[in-house]
Nucleic acid binder design. Structure first.
Lengths: 256, 256
DNA sequence: CAGAAAACGCGTAATTTTAACACAAAACAA
DNA sequence: TTGTTTTGTGTTAAAATTACGCGTTTTCTG
């Protein structure tokens, strides 16, 4: 977000700066917690506060004689956001979805800034021992949300308006779970039923009966079954079956 | 979208132009059809084609010595979008929600343009005899969607990438119907049960049994009952009851 | 206006889905 | 080993969904 502040020529029709921010969700299988990736800001504004990873969109394009951007970029906002994430957090994010824009006046003290927010689903690699990005940190979502909820009126926990963004991202995740197989993008290819249940419980903030949950999942037919060496069973999403499940309109059976 | 093309000074860090487009849904009670408001473009590009109402955001702000926008706007993107709609279609839209951004390279042949898309829910006033905006037209949604679906590969019906936007808006409307009382924002304050059902059927593209639909709605308790002169009964949303319905987690009972 | 057709309100029964809980074998921890 | 937890497999009662029947009122149409 920094090297945007170099001097440049003024222009008559001011345009807002455009940035992207991303709520990266990950499911910590060992702690059985849904977490988000936050970054400690090293510079002002909000130096020392945690923030969502993101930054200014850098458009590589030329302007015509009127100052209008004419040369085609070779990427969309989404692709920009992906590239930024790669640069900033080292994550090669595949499952990323748009959340919405934030443009409240004054949200960025430096200049008028519109943020296009995303949320992404990644599998937290069990590479214990040191996170990649030095100042990046996986924080339990429920802790962040609780902190935000209990904040005194007018106070904020995260930098900028990231409190709102992360809250909205969680709600969206909860809702989209009804329509898309999002949970499976937070898990390794194969997983146990209890892990899947723990994840659903973490996302929806609800507890389910173990046996009813398993039956519902299995009856839906969207899971392939894989025995293991032990008596335990592993499962894997069958995407074709899921899509058929959607087509045949029985999706509401998977809503909890 | 027009008076943005006046010449102005170039700038080093090009920023994309930001526009808003809005899918305005309305329910035609006489025809029992869900419709969208489209505007015939009078100028290039896409002259003569239909498009979503919308246009460039005009930021009234001053820039500092570096050309950065520093003076606070007194409105957000959403408020901008509302104002634009008022100007362009005469609609004083209250129920408007963000849909997402579209920023595919080349989507606007004039310059790099990011669109923040919205969808709005209005009650079509039974002011028969001449639409307000001369070139604005209420078109049945199903006709638009069918036309788009059956288009040859690579061809488009509406201007720009508005085919995609309107399709996405319909999907979002279908989904949000599960979580918010959106249908009632398309109806007058009081309505008959069959009208409500016709609306649900139009949005979800599904047919329901008349008696089962009514029971489900009435059992939920979100409707207040009003007898009429005739034997028929009118209903009205009780927002408090709806919110309580949500809190007590019984919302899934209203999903069809 | 009269007869037909459609719309409306009220109801029942069969089926499916959900919710709550029992039990035993395997895995785990001390 | 022993007590505890986890996992797989049931059962049953309650609730919700689905598919209709029926008589009356309203609306349409010739």
């Amino acid at each position: 977000m920094e090297n945007h502040e170099k001097p440049h020529f003024g222009y008559i029709y001011p345009r807002p700066a455009v940035t992207t921010d991303c709520v990266i969700f990950g499911f910590d299988m060992t702690e059985e917690l849904l977490k988000v990736l936050l970054i400690e800001r090293g510079i002002e504004p909000f130096k020392g506060r945690y923030a969502l990873p993101g930054g200014f969109i850098k458009i590589e394009a030329k302007t015509n004689e009127y100052g209008l951007v004419v040369e085609e970029r070779n990427e969309s906002l989404l692709e920009c956001a992906k590239r930024e994430l790669k640069e900033e957090t080292g994550f090669d994010v595949q499952n990323i979805y748009e959340l919405g824009t934030w443009s409240t006046p004054g949200r960025d003290p430096r200049c008028i800034t519109i943020t296009d927010a995303y949320y992404a689903l990644v599998t937290i690699q069990p590479v214990r021992g040191g996170d990649d990005a030095a100042d990046a940190k996986w924080v339990p979502l429920y802790q962040v949300l609780n902190t935000i909820k209990n904040l005194p009126e007018g106070m904020r926990f995260l930098a900028f308006d990231h409190d709102e963004i992360i809250t909205a991202a969680h709600i969206r995740l909860q809702q989209q779970l009804c329509f898309e197989p999002l949970a499976f993008k937070l898990l390794p290819k194969r997983f146990s039923m209890s892990t899947l249940q723990k994840l659903y419980e973490a996302i929806l903030e609800k507890n389910f009966d173990r046996r009813n949950f398993a039956r519902k999942m299995l009856d839906s037919g969207i899971l392939d079954v894989f025995p293991t060496e032990s008596r335990n069973i592993n499962y894997q999403l069958n995407l074709e079956k899921y899509e058929e499940f959607k087509r045949t309109g029985r999706l509401s059976n998977l809503i909890f």
